[in-house]
Design a binder for these strands. Sequence first.
DNA 1: CTGCATCCCTGCGGATACTG
DNA 2: CAGTATCCGCAGGGATGCAG
Lengths: 132, 132
Amino acid sequence: MGKRKAVEPDISIAKCRYSLLLEIIASKWAVLAIYAMEGGAVRYGEFLRRIEGVSKKMLTQTLRQLERDGLLEREIHDTVPPGVEYRLTPLGQSLIVPLRHMKTWAIAHYPLVREARDDYDRRAVNATISEG
Amino acid sequence: MGKRKAVEPDISIAKCRYSLLLEIIASKWAVLAIYAMEGGAVRYGEFLRRIEGVSKKMLTQTLRQLERDGLLEREIHDTVPPGVEYRLTPLGQSLIVPLRHMKTWAIAHYPLVREARDDYDRRAVNATISEG
DNA sequence: CTGCATCCCTGCGGATACTG
DNA sequence: CAGTATCCGCAGGGATGCAG
């Protein structure tokens, strides 16, 4: 039986469980937000200040998304200036582990990627020039 | 020295080395392409067939990006029907390791995330209804 | 302070057709 | 077979203003 090693019509990695993960981390804001919470609860305005370049719209959107996926908890303090704290759930914290592997890779291989990029771009420029 | 534990004007995780990694893997096509090459060299048309839903435009774009970052090599066979093979460089292969951690996490926690999502959505619907 | 609503514009990315 | 070029729709996401 089996074998049939040929064809493999479409291995279609597309709709596997991995796509779920992509939905989560494909947004850079999501990853940055998770990292911001690594040290403990974070307030809304704190995110805004710590994550450079994020807009209120994107921050709220990202936070909601993470909450929806059960990665963080929203804690509302009914004080007079309203205060809301966001903290990672255990599920969210568990995601930090593989994330850290990625970060480690990034730090270790950053120079190589940069170099490869520069080489590539340099070659591209030369090619363009020599075409005249 | 040191201490100064206060303020921390902007920890600004934004432009750290991690953003480089995000540039690479934030595209789902890039991750899928890398996985496709895990077993060895892959031809252009093979990508097209194996990665469901990818267009020629996006495929070429993704492949170029990965080549630029030194993650894959393009090998051109000057045969009569032109054949081009793409294979991971050692750098590209090294990325598979942390990627695998992510995949493992995804598979392990998929049910939890799904559940959290469903709960969240259910609550959202109820809230909408009770508002009338 | 925390957020939602609106406007608007850029560019991602799909479809199609053409070339080497 | 392996791309490149062009058109174009649509939504991601920034800026701003308002509300609780």
